[in-house]
Amino acid sequence: MGTWIVGLILIAIVVGIIRDMVRKKKEGKSPICGGSCGSCGANCPYASHSHDQQQKQPK
């Protein structure tokens, strides 16, 4: 019984993390960098508002 309870809690945590990462990815943010946009000075390329600018980068 203990195995089932702990196993289900663990699965719920893993599913939660994956869902959060997918959501961030869809929002154009990085699922990897920790999402500390503040520490990047919002220079983070994954911050959604910066995408317009990135498209305009000269080649």
Binding site: I18, C33, G35, S36, G38, S39
Partner: peptide
């Protein structure tokens, strides 16, 4: 500034690092 930078590592440990360890 210290906390903003440091907290991202704590968040990472609870997400991508946790998945990696599994």
């Amino acid at each position: 500034s210290m906390w903003e930078r440091g907290s991202s590592f704590i968040k990472k440990a609870g997400t991508i690092i946790l998945l990696s360890t599994i």
